[in-house]
Design a protein around this nucleic acid. Structure first.
Lengths: 107, 107
DNA sequence: AAAAACCATAACCATTCGGTTATGAATTGT
DNA sequence: ACAATTCATAACCGAATGGTTATGGTTTTT
């Protein structure tokens, strides 16, 4: 019961600007909308809309602090995509399987 | 050399119908356009267009045989997506790293 | 108190997208 | 030779997408 439909995640990461925002949040950690706007090269409303899409996919969380909103990446929301790759990326399936076996032995 | 931009792959897999086609090709192996059309639940031209998009992302290969065209999944084209997950999926990064270390030791 | 900063939403616009039907080219079957 | 099958492309359409500027609500700064 890890995930039902990976739809939102795949959709959200299909856009390069959105991917760039997520990447930036992963690299630099928590950021305000203002900081992300300077980084993204598009208008502030555009960034806000992208963040809404990422939020819907649970790829980011936000935290209000005064007049600014801090966003941070929520990497475990990538699970549906990883699961999908495990099932349909035959090329990688062996490796994933071996990984899981290893991790279990490590517990 | 592994991949420049994962753009085409992410875009191609964003659509559920396209993902379903790729999944079907992965599960059942090579298929004609006709077979895929019966499976996909959309018109034949729609399937052809989806296959064109998947082809652009190198996710499928085709082979003409008489009047029919056989398509098959090209799973190693998922590499850019896996690489991206390795870099930006912090949650999974440790696991990937450990996996690669293990695999190297196993050679 | 007034001004400025930060952010989200609304309204709008051009383009892209995913689908359709129509058509034609090539191959196969009768 | 003719009919039928397979597929790709063209032409078209409504909806979704990604961007913009305008606006307004909070909160901070002066």
């Amino acid at each position: 019961m890890t995930s039902t439909s990976p739809n939102h995640v795949f959709r959200a990461l299909a856009d390069p600007t959105r991917r760039a925002i997520f990447e930036e949040l992963t690299r630099q950690g928590e950021q305000t909308v203002h900081a992300l706007t300077r980084y993204a090269g598009v208008s502030q409303p555009a960034v806000s809309k992208h963040l809404t899409v990422l939020k819907r996919a649970k790829l980011v969380r936000h935290r209000r602090e005064g007049r600014e909103t801090h966003y941070r990446a929520q990497a475990d929301a990538l699970t549906p995509m990883v699961d999908w790759l495990k099932h349909y990326g035959a090329f990688w399936r062996d490796r994933f399987d071996r990984l899981e076996a290893l991790l279990e032995r490590m517990e």
